[in-house]
Amino acid sequence: MRKTFIDTLCKIAKDNENVWLLSGDLGYSVLEQFSRQFPNRYINTGVAEQNMMGVAAGLSLSGKIVFTYSISNFTVMRCLEQIRNDICYHNLNVNIVGVGGGFTYGSAGYSHHAVEDYGVLMPMPNMSIFVPCDPIETKLCIENAYGFEGPSYIRLEKNCDYTVHDKTPHYSIGNPIRILEGKDATIVSTGGVVNQAMTAAKLLANLDINVSVISLPSVKPIDLKSLAAVLNTPIIITIEEHSEFGGISQLVNKAIIQYQINVNEVVNLCTSDDIIYSIGSQDFIRHKLSMTSEKIKNTIIKLMNS
């Protein structure tokens, strides 16, 4: 995802000399492509996120389109008030790229687990939030963030050795993407863990259980009506490497209530307070949270038999 991000941004910056990139002293082996091509529009602002966001606001107020880059928690939490007051209130073209979404840096410990990031940003005015699931969605999200007036947050993971989509899907901001369609259950997910949902769906297909898989590349804004329209099976499961608070589980549950969707079971797989002390690989922590393909498969079988 990081590679796709920087490739996409370099293409954008080539066409528009107003595009700048700021880094909070992170992005080794990723950002050099930009800094080499556009040295006058790249600044490593140092390990100082509050200043970085203020500088981004000042650049944007002067007509620049700014992307910032850091690890998710550092670029969301440390400088949240700068994001709220300086960037969101003034509705500036600042696009905040956070890497390490969810448990990408699982073994690094809680400081690096980005599991409250988009929930924290959800109420911020004018803010769009993108959570791509693979390189194809990453490209779409970066292009949309660039093309969309106002601030955005793009939550990336790290490396991505798979693609969820075979080809670029039809996508408009705020709308869900249906990747698979099935009648027995619907999985709604966002970010890299969508890939686990896809694998689970394929495993279930071997058992003649047909599952819809829905990806939400943008979690804000969200077209609740379009979301409700894809929740047309008796079992609904949401999966996200994020707290339920401010997460897609709340969006899906709201859609179900607001549009009076008739469902038998709703399960929200998300992070929990007792997981914060868990350290290990992304797969290890996903397993603990029942978010691996095998566990998702078993959950659906159990729900169908209950």
Binding site: N40, R41, I43, Q50, N51, M52, M53, G54, V55, A56, A57, G58, L59, S60, L61, S62, G63, K64, E81, Q82, N85, D86, Y89, H90
Partner: peptide, 23 residues
């Protein structure tokens, strides 16, 4: 140019503006 109220926001924004002017 910019709203303020929470302290410590003006100087970083001013830095961004100064940088843009120079560039």
């Amino acid at each position: 140019e910019v709203s303020s109220g929470s302290l410590g926001h003006g100087l970083p924004i001013a830095c961004g503006m100064a940088l843009a002017a120079k560039a």
